[in-house]
């Protein structure tokens, strides 16, 4: 499955990092990093991350 994050919207709330730590993480400069393509077994976690994003910056595209 594929993930997109709109960095114009992202405010680094880190809710996605807690919902799907295998796909999203905060780097040392406190910016969000993520894997653009992850295994389908993470779908529920990634959907939780998208649902929990305060600014709706996360899209699941495949």
């Amino acid at each position: 499955m594929k993930i997109e994050v709109d960095y114009d919207l992202c405010e680094n709330h880190a809710q996605c990092v807690f919902a799907a730590p295998d796909a999203f993480r905060m780097n040392a400069s406190d910016e969000l990093e993520f894997d653009a393509e992850v295994d389908d077994s993470l779908r529920e976690d990634v959907q939780s991350a998208a649902d929990a994003c305060p600014v709706q910056a996360i899209r699941i595209t495949g």
């Binding site: 680094n12 709330h13 880190a14 990092v17 807690f18 905060m26 040392a28 406190d30």
Partner: peptide, 10 residues
């Protein structure tokens, strides 16, 4: 504090 610093506390 910055978001990352909340992670260990959480």
């Amino acid at each position: 504090a910055p978001p990352r610093s909340f992670i260990p506390h959480r």
